[in-house]
Design a protein around this nucleic acid. Structure first.
Length: 278
DNA sequence: CTATTTGTTTATCC
DNA sequence: AGGATAAACAAATA
């Protein structure tokens, strides 16, 4: 489920725990979500006694910052939601445990829960006792699509370099377009009027310009709706057809009212409207 | 029972 | 060597 907007939404779900002290952590130790930790139990136990200070999102990555007075002072919990990861907070007294609650942070008032039934998500942990610095891997993340570093020139270079791959596949590469996922990319290409099968290198200058505009406006629009409170993106967007419960054969382009084409492109199910995406 | 899934990593092929 | 594509991961849902 989670692309940049959903990730931002889930980031906020732990906000009730801000300022709270960690009393204990609970985890399903053998689960795949801890695959990057050598000793999950021992490492994550290091959060005990620390206070949840703040959090941030970058593309599909989340980072939760914990702090305490004795060394190490700064503790960094990384969360990737994979395909089915979710975060939620419950009042401790009312906590109803689900069998896929693989990681739970217990505070005085709340429990902060990471739930992921397909286990493609990932929990990481870093600590250092010097000054405030996010971990190395976080600092090396690529420019966000809504940052000023995401320039037209930067985009052109990427499309040139990955010129032979379908544009759909290229836009899904997290090392270039952090946070874009399957539905956002389809929406972007639909709004930009670009056929998802086109080789990335075949886009003309004005198409690249339009693509950049749509990458940014669709990302912004998704963040303002789903990212805020899970409300629906703008009514005119194509994604509503995709999410509708209609049979595939009955899904239509909101613009042309003709059937959408649904095929695998770049290894992923792709929706597009042939009459307006060239 | 079979096919499908909004993600990423690894293996394999070109 | 570097890039493109397929498979694997795991579990729920249609």
């Amino acid at each position: 489920m989670p692309e940049l907007a959903e990730v931002e939404y889930f980031r906020k779900q732990w906000n009730p725990g801000l300022g709270g002290k960690v009393e204990a952590v609970r985890l399903h130790e053998g689960k795949r979500v801890f695959r990057d930790l050598k000793k999950p139990r021992i490492q994550l136990d290091g959060l005990r006694g620390s206070i949840l200070e703040d959090s941030r999102a970058h593309g599909k990555n989340l980072l939760f910052h914990f702090r305490r007075d004795k060394n190490p002072q700064h503790l960094w919990l990384g969360v990737h939601l994979g395909m089915t990861g979710k975060l939620r907070t419950e009042r401790k007294a009312a906590y109803a445990e689900d069998k896929h609650d693989h990681f739970v942070i217990v505070q005085a008032e709340h429990v902060l829960v990471f739930n992921d039934y397909r286990l493609f998500g990932k929990i990481t942990f870093d600590q250092k006792d010097d000054d405030y610095h996010p971990p190395e891997w976080w600092q090396k993340l690529p420019p966000e699509v809504l940052s000023s570093r995401f320039s037209l020139n930067y985009l052109s270079k990427i499309l040139e370099r990955r010129g032979k791959a379908p544009i759909k596949a290229v836009l899904l590469m997290q090392e270039f377009f952090p946070g874009l996922g399957n539905w956002l990319v389809d929406e972007i290409l639909w709004q930009a009027g670009i056929d998802p099968r086109r080789p990335a290198g075949s886009l003309k200058e004005d198409e690249v310009q339009e693509l950049r505009n749509k990458i940014r406006s669709v990302s912004r629009g998704a963040l303002k709706t789903i990212g805020e409170d899970w409300r629906d993106p703008p009514k005119k967007w194509m994604v509503h057809e995709r999410w509708s419960s209609k049979k595939e054969s009955e899904k239509i382009c909101p613009q042309t009212k003709e059937p959408l084409r649904i095929e695998t492109v770049g290894g992923r199910t792709t929706y597009w409207s042939p009459a307006i995406q060239k």
